[in-house]
Design a protein around this nucleic acid. Sequence first.
DNA 1: CGCATTGTTGACAAAGTTCAATTTGCGTGG
DNA 2: CCACGCAAATTGAACTTTGTCAACAATGCG
Lengths: 239, 239
Amino acid sequence: MIDEGRRGRAASRAALPPGFRSKLLEGLTPSEMAAILAAAKQRRISPNQVLLPEGDSANHLFLLVTGVAASYKATPEGSQLFLRWISPGDAFGLATLLQVQQPYVVTIQAQREGSLFVWEQASACALASQIPRLRENANTMVGEFVARLADALAARASQTAEQRLARVLVESARHIGRAGREGSELRLTNEQLAQMADVSLFTASRQLNEWQRQGILAKSRGKILLRASKRLGSLLSGD
Amino acid sequence: MIDEGRRGRAASRAALPPGFRSKLLEGLTPSEMAAILAAAKQRRISPNQVLLPEGDSANHLFLLVTGVAASYKATPEGSQLFLRWISPGDAFGLATLLQVQQPYVVTIQAQREGSLFVWEQASACALASQIPRLRENANTMVGEFVARLADALAARASQTAEQRLARVLVESARHIGRAGREGSELRLTNEQLAQMADVSLFTASRQLNEWQRQGILAKSRGKILLRASKRLGSLLSGD
DNA sequence: CGCATTGTTGACAAAGTTCAATTTGCGTGG
DNA sequence: CCACGCAAATTGAACTTTGTCAACAATGCG
């Protein structure tokens, strides 16, 4: 998505793409920013690669630079519960900054090619101590994460299969949709959608057909063209 | 752990009961502890009183000293989703310590008579800045809260009505059960249990009767005597 | 004793899942 | 270029779980 421009730099040296914004790095002075970037390693990621496995002891802090990732929570039964998409500028592995060692709470898996910054726990903690604003930002992000998680919980407990599917479509369109004149195109199979919405394959198929009949979307194999995501959004709150 | 000795202190002056332990106050020096307690107001709470309403801007930090409270999350449909019991030593309103103003994520409601400490946002923030260990402790608690919330999410998404009910019984026995020789006695109506487990009143009634038939518990009006909470616990993971 | 609260039971409805049988789309190798 | 083969998608029907509703029973308080 973003062309690196200068390809001549050392691959492991951290460099921000133009126009990059992150809540983690907001409000920092140039010298603070330089110190933080100097301590980071840059890494390429490839589709389906697990970037951060739930349950592992938290010892790396990550910042997604380009590409898209998804976060999942494992259920006791062994399935993966989709939580949300991770976009460039989002940080994860924030448990790394806690003084008391804690395990990662969710799994993060890359969806596309992309790149991220990684900090070792030691340097991340050192940076957070030296740069109060960095810890503030991290704490704020944790706060937002908590709010999001709580909302997901409330939603999950009260939404129907149809609503969950609608939510997955709308959110996915925002994060991994390719915009076209006809609408937003998603490269997802019924099975992936069903898994993300926690709905059976068959329910997903039936519901998608229903929406296709209503002109809300068009499907072909492995692809969905979302024409009227608004009408799906209205399923979630209002009607 | 800490015995205050002097009972002659003013009622609104914070005083810890003997044997009181809290993760929030762990590892603090006596002088730090004194500063923290000096800044606190002590308040009595009465049953069903809402201590912290979800959505309100976070401007008070709380520490439950005696009694029991429950935390709930409101669903978009207007019902309350039970999350967990709050016991003495548990803190809540931790969002108060964030620099960026954020709303409370859950509602906390008192279950019994009891008391708690309250800090205004200004003094709580000041204390957290002066006493690094306090902020550390708060961050650790947030981390645990996140883990708990995520587990609740996973559980909710994959558990049956029976399992949810079992979980509510087991957890309630731990937190609000009166231990007797026959087992643990809970003062809860079917309706309360049903609401906590997010199950219909009728499903709750039937399931409880089933368990009574199996000798796992005994019911009378408004009361449940849990004889074999182990067998309920085994429903949650193993069998 | 009267009465409100609490709990029980059965019949039925709704939402989703499961499964088996097919059909559709699409890349590949002959 | 076409037929093959496979993954993806569809469809109907039975089934499971849980909620809904109405009628009724019991409990215990004033």
